[in-house]
Design a protein around this nucleic acid. Structure first.
Length: 425
RNA sequence: GGAGAGGUGGCCGAGUGAGGACGAAGGCGCUCGCCUGCUAAGCGAGUAUAGGGGCAUACACCUCUAUCGAGGGUUCAAAUCCCUCCCUCUCCGCCA
């Protein structure tokens, strides 16, 4: 959520930012509502002050044993007016809030201009895509060949866009999760948490998925519950409506969770394999930081996610998302894209974002400096560290061999009982 | 799922069947000052958050409003009365 003060003082800045994002928002209506809100607020509060004072008088009269019926009758009409104004104000406030919640964040000045994916800017590459003496296969071919990925059975028990992992694949998934968590907790200073994967509406509003993107979520019928689309939601909301001590910043939490996405509007995309699923696993990194440091923290966060790819010796590149491709709540996002030989493409495997105070304002996440009287909003960041299923995809495709087996990255072997190739028992 | 108890400031805890002086006693903690060889104790003062206005700028000051789990209602006036919901705890049932 944007600061409504910014809207008042620099409407042109907001307007320009929204134009860059290709966001369609009626700013004038919003500014008008805000003005009305403040005017009504002043009016009704003046009346309330009057009423409060008069009520005190009534109390004193009664204490002295005087008759106050004339005075109270008079106050009745005042209260009626207050009530009417309060109702009007509440309505305006609801409208304003509703609108405000649908406005995306303002992109950071360093974010490149652009329409969409193709305008994203490559920042750096790491590693060299492997050369094959044979046509490299796609992950789903490799995975199904060794009976690790079972799409038919998953379709039977759930539907399309689900997978059943068997044997080595299930174990590999588990190994990756442990590996990632170990690196982040032991080397990057994150505290591991394991949150609920079902959350309420308030949490989703707090991180920005709601009210705008309801159709992307799985909603549990007849309840206020939703399946999380990412651990970002429960983990960021740990500190909803909380004021932190400045000394605890930067605070880093990491979490492994399943993630659930309805993938509405993605029909026909990535229908083969496990790139795009209704349920997948992700290790997520979330940071709560001092506003002055959030961009340095973003760079740091990216290196934490990159470390996993580097340990697994998977070639990747880092891109900065352009204004047109930026997520709703983000001010700046780096995507990590891993090389997939089967597709001969770099594909997203992590997304690292600085939300500045956008989520913090929605969720009420603040910090207090030792001397300061007032608290301030923290900046929140998060990034995948990494998407587990896609990491498996990258390993299968990058480490495949002519005989159809797959080498296991050295860093991962200890997590697989020393196995060096897939399939293993 | 059944029965009961309860949610008050950073924490503990009064107040809630007489609705009015209650943003809320008292204590702890914290901050500043005094005192004090040092520490502890003692003494004094202060100590919630958010929003609006004064403002052209400020987290400085003044002022108003709201907030006693949340939302509604009654009333001139609600922490206190009524309704709905949420959460916590205890016992029973069920269950991994």
């Amino acid at each position: 959520m944007l600061d409504s003060k910014l809207l008042r003082t620099h409407p042109d800045r907001v307007r320009e930012a929204l134009r860059q994002r290709r966001a369609n928002v009626d700013l004038d209506a919003l500014i008008g509502l805000d003005e009305t809100r403040r005017r009504l607020t002043t009016e009704v509060e003046t009346l309330k002050a009057e009423r409060n004072q008069a009520s005190q008088e009534v109390a004193q009269m009664k204490r002295r044993g005087e008759d106050a019926t004339a005075r109270t009758a008079e106050l009745g009409t005042l209260s009626q007016r207050i009530k009417a104004l309060d109702e009007e104000l509440a309505m305006i406030d609801r409208q304003l809030q509703e609108l405000l919640l649908t406005i995306p964040n303002i992109p950071h000045a360093s974010v490149p201009q652009g329409e969409g994916e193709t305008d994203n800017v490559e920042v750096r590459r790491w590693g060299t895509p492997p050369q094959f003496a044979f046509p490299p296969k796609e992950h789903w071919e490799i995975g199904t060949a060794h009976n690790g990925l079972d799409f038919e059975t998953a379709a039977k028990i759930a539907g399309s866009r689900f997978v059943l992992l068997r044997g080595w694949a299930a174990r590999l998934e588990r190994a990756l999760i442990n590996f990632m968590l170990d690196v982040h907790t032991q080397e990057h200073g994150y505290t591991e948490v394991l949150p609920p994967v079902i959350v309420n509406r308030d949490s989703l509003v707090g991180t920005g998925q709601l009210p705008k993107f309801e159709e992307d979520l799985f909603h549990l019928a007849g309840t206020d519950y939703y399946l999380i689309p990412t651990a970002e939601v429960p983990v960021t909301n740990i500190f909803r409506d909380t004021t932190l001590e400045e000394a605890v910043l930067p605070l880093g939490l990491c979490a492994f969770t399943p993630c659930f996405r309805s993938e509405a509007g993605s029909y026909g995309k990535d229908t083969k394999g496990i790139i795009r699923q209704h349920q997948f696993h992700k290790v997520e990194l979330v940071r709560f930081v001092h506003p002055e440091r959030s961009y340095a923290e973003l760079e740091l966060l990216v290196t934490h996610a990159e470390a996993i790819l580097q340990r697994l010796e998977l070639p990747y590149r880092v891109v900065t998302l352009c204004t047109g491709d930026l997520g709703f709540a983000s001010a700046k996002t780096y995507d990590l894209e891993v090389w997939l030989p089967g597709q001969a493409k770099y594909r997203e495997i992590s997304s690292c974002s600085n939300f500045e105070d956008f989520q913090a304002r929605r969720a009420g996440i603040r910090f207090r400096s030792p001397g300061a009287k007032k608290s301030s909003l923290v900046h929140t960041l998060n990034g995948s560290g990494l998407a587990v299923g896609r990491t498996m995809v990258a390993i299968l495709e990058n480490y495949q061999q002519a005989d159809g087996t797959v080498r296991i990255p050295t860093a991962l072997q200890p997590y697989l009982g020393g196995a060096t190739t897939i399939p293993f028992a």
